[in-house]
Design a protein around this nucleic acid. Structure first.
Lengths: 113, 113
DNA sequence: GTGTTGTTCAACCATGTGGTTGAGGGTAGC
DNA sequence: GCTACCCTCAACCACATGGTTGAACAACAC
């Protein structure tokens, strides 16, 4: 269900630490260790954040020896971006149309009473 | 601070009820009552959600008599959309570049060890 | 005035979140 | 084998979230 996916992606993005992790990952794949080194967080804390990002489909973790290599998956942002793009465009057009209506004397408020 | 704003917007969008409210609001301004009527939620519950959306700057509430009229503010989506657009583009380009590197025999993994 | 309606607020509850610590499982190095 | 390292998991804590109910307030209707 796409709704569920949107929930997860938006929630994942709502945390600055997780956005930082994504930013870090954008400059290349890394291990969990490298990822957590600069963060003011415990190892396990970072691992939890990665879990959230992974459940949202934004990153993948893959075992390589005793390390875990983390990679970005930009495709997972697609749904969220589509949602935002559609709605900003749609809303803006609607609001412009309403503005035009008001200017011509019609009263939009009647629509909802 | 834009970080703070992103937190709030993404968090506001991470809830399906709130996205439904936004969708409903896209077809015209409404009162809190009209908004909560079709939702399987108490009046106060909807009011709380509106508080979250308002703090994120996504909607505005304005008193009109004893009612509160809710309106969309599409501009507040701008930051979130910009963030997403920049990152999807940036990530995708990076990943394509890495793919090209790998194909030419260079090993990107050396970058982070 | 009284009563009704629209809305918020405060208090509460269950659950989720972001963080910690400590234990433990694999893997690498010797 | 042993030890050291990378990482996850389970348990815990404080606090936020999403929901409820009931009280309160402001404005309309009479």
């Amino acid at each position: 269900m796409v709704e569920q996916h949107l929930n997860r992606v938006f929630h994942a993005l709502s945390n600055p630490t997780r956005r930082a992790i994504l930013g870090r990952l954008a400059s290349g794949q890394t291990t969990v260790g490298d990822l957590s080194r600069p963060l003011p967080l415990s190892f396990a804390g970072v691992s939890k954040h990665l879990g959230v990002l992974e459940r949202a489909g934004l990153v993948t973790r893959e075992a390589r020896g005793r390390e875990r290599v983390c990679r970005l998956n930009p495709a997972a942002l697609r749904d969220a971006q589509d949602w935002l793009e559609f709605h900003t465009r749609f809303w803006t057009e609607r609001l412009n149309a309403l503005g035009a209506l008001v200017e011509t004397g019609a009263d939009e408020e009647g629509e909802r009473r």
